[in-house]
């Protein structure tokens, strides 16, 4: 990408950590305040997407490599199912909130809702990685029409 603006580059460098931090906050406090795994994951991935837009693909892939994003995508989903299956193992009911018994916790404190916080973290990972991957693929795949009029997808840059 040519003609990259200095202002955008500088400001995005300053903004990114705060966006990321806010995403982590929304994921972790999902059971106490508005938010949760999905919105938090979207905010987390928007930090990476800002890097992608402002500094280009190389810089974004340095922050979140393609292989790692793919793995996080699968691990997030697996973690969510594991929490549900652990409920099945400990109490005999699928998706049971088994940690609620062990650590009832204080209301309005971060460790009080049992497995919900774990589920939020799992969803946050999954959504962050998969939204980043979607944007990454939109940036690297381009539809071009070849000689035979067939659609070809090719990597650009």
């Amino acid at each position: 990408m040519k003609n990259r603006s200095l202002i955008i580059e500088r400001v995005s460098r300053w903004m990114t950590p705060f966006i990321f931090l806010y995403g982590v906050y929304v994921v972790l406090y999902g059971h106490l305040s508005p938010g949760g795994g999905f919105p938090g994951g979207v905010i987390l991935s928007s930090a990476f997407i800002l890097i992608l837009l402002a500094k280009g693909k190389q810089q974004a892939l340095k922050n979140l490599p393609y292989g790692l994003a793919k793995k996080l995508d699968a691990i997030g989903a697996l973690a969510f199912i594991s929490v549900a299956l652990l409920g099945f193992v400990f109490t005999g009911v699928f998706f049971a909130n088994f940690l609620q018994q062990l650590w009832p916790g204080e209301p309005f404190h971060i460790l009080n809702a049992g497995t919900i916080i774990l589920n939020n973290i799992a969803i946050g990972l999954k959504v962050c990685a998969s939204l980043f991957l979607v944007l990454l693929f939109l940036s690297i795949l381009r539809i071009s029409f070849g000689k035979k009029g067939q659609m070809q997808s090719m990597e650009d840059r």
Binding site: K71, A74, L78, L85, F94
Partner: peptide, 12 residues
């Protein structure tokens, strides 16, 4: 749950 979990294990 089993096919879902297997699906995500396979993705890894």
């Amino acid at each position: 749950a089993i096919p879902l979990a297997a699906g995500f294990v396979l993705a890894l």
